[in-house]
Design a binder for these strands. Structure first.
Length: 526
RNA sequence: UCCCCGAUAGCUCAACCGGUAGAGCGGGCGGCUGUUAACCGCCAGGUCGUAGGUUCGAAUCCUACUCGGGGAGCCA
């Protein structure tokens, strides 16, 4: 827990953060994140009790104020007795204001602590439902309104904030114009079955699935544009990579080809990663993210064509890779099972109670690790089979993407997918009409797709042909076809999923933790 | 929509081959000048998801349902 150990700074854009707060509001409180500038001084903090321990004459209150955590030391005799007694019985998440002397203390979280001289309880709380112990997924989602206060969610929220800020800055600083595309859409962007319907004064509209078609209009007006907002997919997907409402940023550029798009995408993603490393290293550390791996994320990324990816999947390399993975998993399984047997034997004998409890906790952790490994072991041959039998022409499945991405230590572009597997607006490759000029970007080490994009079909007649072939209604696309009638230019863009990106950066296994209030299929808590 | 797994105290989990439930955390009270998910002692807290069935006896076995988790398809 060292998220407050250094003040994250962003000086590259001429900003110093924390900003000068008096510019926007007057406030006598000091934020925990500013404590390093106040060593030896008296300050007042306001916040919530994150954790509290008491040891007779001395109490330790870990205060949480939204900017960080700070240990407040409350010693009998150095604070009024009645205040001491009140603090002693404060429950988790009680709110209070506390005054004291700031001092450096390496043992303390954040490296500073507050020697309290006075305090005022704002609201005493008991029975806060989320305890410092482990909780189940469902319980935490049902308490999402409170769970946001916890350390892990706080770190993820801070990183998400940086990711979004980095996205906006990247485009704003590179000549892109923000264009807001509509959320209520009259026609489908891609496939109609995955759209949410909205009753619109008696007629039907849909929640947006992509801003791309509108963005193409804007690209012809501004050159380089992007849109950024919520996106809705009514797909009945129940996996760790899916939400029904998620945030997507989509750039669209006039006069660009596929290599140009790949270059843009790798610079864009590298920029996001370096901003997060710069601003959020303490949070990444708290989350146990792979910081060394992220420091490696610099252009150029790997480039594979779909056909090459298929060759890899069907080839010797994948067979070997999957077998190695299985061996590794089996070895892990053996180690864990051995440890479980050891502990079980120990538990059966005569041992001290505290040792027994500790063993029980370890056993629980080991059993859940074992479950996960067993699932992977069970899936391994299935995924190997899927890969080995992969037919050219299909879209890559989740497990195929995982295999490709696990083989690489940097993001991988997979380009030139079969035309039949892709949307009507993607540009047919003129050298090989069986494929389109598109790409997916797979995040490394098994995280999978975070970007999908393409060059758009800019030839009027070819686009019309695709619309007909896909069985789409021409009249819905009149305006879209117009773009190919009046000064058509090569252009393209891509979409990046914010939650998937945050999940990759933080090492979070499920994207539902990467948005404050997740919307999942059949499940919306608050 | 399909496949696999689960449901026991407020929370996380135990309870072996069927004999009507235990531990930690959290809560309450007390102890301890420096703790790091502190520690120690005491106390409170359970129709074992719901409904049937098998059995002398069911948390445990069987069936159905409900809710949840993971995966597949599809995708950012």
């Amino acid at each position: 827990m060292c998220f407050a150990s250094g003040v994250p700074r962003c000086i590259f854009y001429g900003l110093i953060w924390p900003f000068k707060k008096e510019l926007i509001m007057s406030d006598n409180r000091t934020l925990i994140i500013q404590l390093k500038d106040f060593a030896g001084q008296q300050v007042t903090l306001s916040g919530w009790v994150y954790q509290a321990r008491s040891s007779g004459k001395v109490q330790f209150i870990i205060l949480r104020d939204g900017s960080g955590l700070c240990q407040c030391v409350v010693e009998k005799g150095k604070i009024p007795d009645d205040v001491f007694d009140k603090l002693e019985h404060l429950g988790q998440e009680s709110s209070l204001t506390i005054t004291g002397l700031v001092r450096a203390e390496p043992r303390s979280v954040g490296g500073f602590e507050l020697a309290a001289t006075n305090a005022q309880v704002i609201h005493a709380t008991t029975d806060y439902p989320i305890t410092p112990k482990e909780h189940g997924v469902d319980f935490l989602l049902k308490h999402r309104h409170l769970h946001l206060r916890s350390q892990r969610q706080w770190c993820i929220g801070k990183i998400r904030h940086t990711v979004i800020d980095a996205i906006r800055r990247f485009f704003n600083d590179n000549g892109f114009t923000l264009v807001d595309t509509p959320i209520l859409m009259s026609a489908a962007g891609e496939e109609e079955q995955s759209l949410f319907e909205v009753d619109y004064f008696g007629s039907t509209l849909f929640l947006t699935q992509t801003g791309q078609l509108h963005l193409e209009c804007a690209a012809a007006a501004f050159g380089k544009v992007y849109c950024f907002g919520p996106t809705f997919r009514a797909e009945k997907s129940k996996t760790r990579r899916h939400l029904t409402e998620f945030w997507m940023v989509e750039p669209e550029v006039a006069f660009i080809d596929l290599p140009g798009l790949l270059e843009l995408a790798e610079n864009f993603v590298s920029n996001i990663v370096s901003r997060v490393l710069q601003d959020n290293k303490p949070q990444l550390e708290t989350l146990g993210a792979d910081i060394a791996g992220l420091e490696n994320i610099k252009p150029p990324f790997y480039r594979l064509t779909y056909t090459q990816a298929v060759e890899i999947l069907r080839g010797e390399k994948t067979v070997k890779f999957m077998a190695e993975q299985l061996t590794q998993l089996s070895r892990q399984k053996e180690t864990i099972e051995k440890r479980i047997t050891e502990l079980d034997t120990e538990q059966a004998g005569q041992i001290k109670q505290w040792k027994r409890d500790k063993n029980a906790a370890e056993l629980i952790a080991l059993r859940s690790d074992l479950d996960e490994i067993n699932i992977k072991i069970e899936n391994n041959p299935k995924h190997a089979k899927l890969a080995a039998e992969f037919q050219w022409g299909k879209d890559l499945g989740g497990s195929d993407e995982t295999i490709i991405s696990t083989m690489h230590d940097k993001p991988v572009f997979v380009t030139h997918y079969p035309r039949e597997a892709k949307a009507f607006y993607m540009k047919t490759d003129r050298d090989n009409v069986k494929v389109v000029q598109n790409f997916d970007m797979l995040a490394p080490k098994g995280f999978g797709e975070i970007i999908g994009g393409s060059v758009r079909e800019d030839d009027h007649d070819m686009l019309l042909k695709r619309i007909d072939e896909m069985g789409l209604k021409r009249e819905n696309y009149d305006w879209y076809l117009d773009l190919r009638k009046y000064g058509s230019v090569p252009h393209g863009g891509f979409g990046l999923g914010v939650e998937r990106t945050v999940a990759w950066l933080t090492g979070e296994s499920h994207i539902r933790q990467c948005i404050p209030f997740p919307r999942m299929m059949d499940k919306v808590y608050i």
